[in-house]
Computed example of a mutant assay.
Amino acid sequence: MKILITGTAGFIGYHLAQKLLKRGDTVVGIDNINDYYDVKLKHARLLDAGIKVSDLAYNKPVCSVKHPNYTFIKLDITDKQNLEQHFQTYQFDAVCNLAAQAGVRYSLTNPDVYIDSNVKGFLNILECCRHFKINHLVYASSSSVYGLNKKMPFSEHDIADHPVSLYAASKKANEMMAHTYSHLFNLRTTGLRFFTVYGPWGRPDMALFIFTKAILEGKPIEVFNNGNMLRDFTYIDDIVDGITHVIDQPAEVNYLWDAKKPDPATSTAPFRVFNIGRGAPVSLLDFVSEIEIQVNKKAIKTFKPMQDGDVAETCADVSNLNEMLNYKPQVSVHTGVERFIAWYKKFYHIKNITAGTVLVQ
């Protein structure tokens, strides 16, 4: 297939592009390469995929020197005019929208960028998919949409209408917008509610990256809610396997959908929403212990209360994705953390990881 992936300089987008390229798909990647976190890391991901950073210019297609079937374009999805031109040029079979302003805590102080990217930008994607007859739109939602829900595990069949951050609200808005386009224009859409994705090339604002860096540098880590946190940590390889299965099986109408007992996960339109996680939450303190074991160094913990916009526990019910698309996470937290630490050491040129001896460049 010819697939557009937005956000390919990002963590999940980078890995998904690699997966699809290896199986022979033609991939066009789009990313605005913003400075929400270290641009050097985004450039490094692109370089690893064969995109020469020196060739980057806004709205200029750059061909990979490693993958003849990969083209990258530095572009913001809020730029509707240029976005439409590329839809016209490439005639995509499917679109996977991973471009978004990420981060729960950042949304507390920078709300405008979430509306621009996550709402206006997503509207542009929907409009392009509508007008250029895209067969399937897959897009990133988030486990954060569950908000105040306490029923565990989180199920797509339960109502999720009480978000506790603007980031979560923007992701819930994406789902509602997608349903509208599925209903009005018969656009096949699938939303994926990601649960705490981690692994090599991960985001520096996520727990594993923050904790690893601080522990190696001998700095304290902040442990919120006094450590009483559970997270459904899901390794990146399991995530991209799941996304690939979803892309290959476009959403269909649920002919058994009952308007008197509406199921939020499906519809009379070709619309669906899936959880995509591991389905086995781990305590934050156990997660920290795993990092300590891998780097052979104890963390200096500073315990703090719960932060605004955060939730104490996440756990994904992944039975729908398993039953419909044979999604089966394989990577344990032990193996996942081990692989991340190995990547981190190599990427940042860290040697001699022993207690008290750390070289960081």
Rank of each mutant, 00 (worst) to 15 (best):
I77C: 00
W343R: 09
T302Y: 13
F87D: 02
V333W: 02
P220C: 07
G29Q: 06
M177T: 08
L98C: 07
P329R: 04
A251Y: 00
F132P: 07
R278W: 09
N149K: 06
I341P: 11
I247K: 03
E222H: 10
F303L: 13
V311Q: 06
Q330I: 00
N174A: 12
I5T: 05
S182P: 01
S170I: 05
I77S: 05
C96D: 02
A355P: 07
H157G: 09
G10T: 03
I30Q: 12
I30L: 15
R45Y: 02
I77Y: 03
G7I: 06
N97E: 03
I221F: 06
Y198I: 12
A173V: 08
I115V: 15
I215F: 01
V138Q: 06
T180Y: 13
D25N: 14
S141R: 02
A94Y: 11
R339F: 02
H136L: 04
L208S: 11
G191W: 13
S143T: 11
K171Y: 10
R272L: 04
V273S: 09
L126N: 07
L184F: 09
K301T: 12
P68L: 00
A299Q: 10
S319E: 13
T196I: 12
A94W: 06
G13F: 05
T78N: 10
G50S: 04
L47F: 11
H183N: 14
S319K: 12
L285C: 05
L123F: 14
I293M: 11
H179T: 02
K66H: 07
N254E: 09
G356P: 06
R105E: 15
P204E: 11
N149T: 12
T78F: 00
P270R: 01
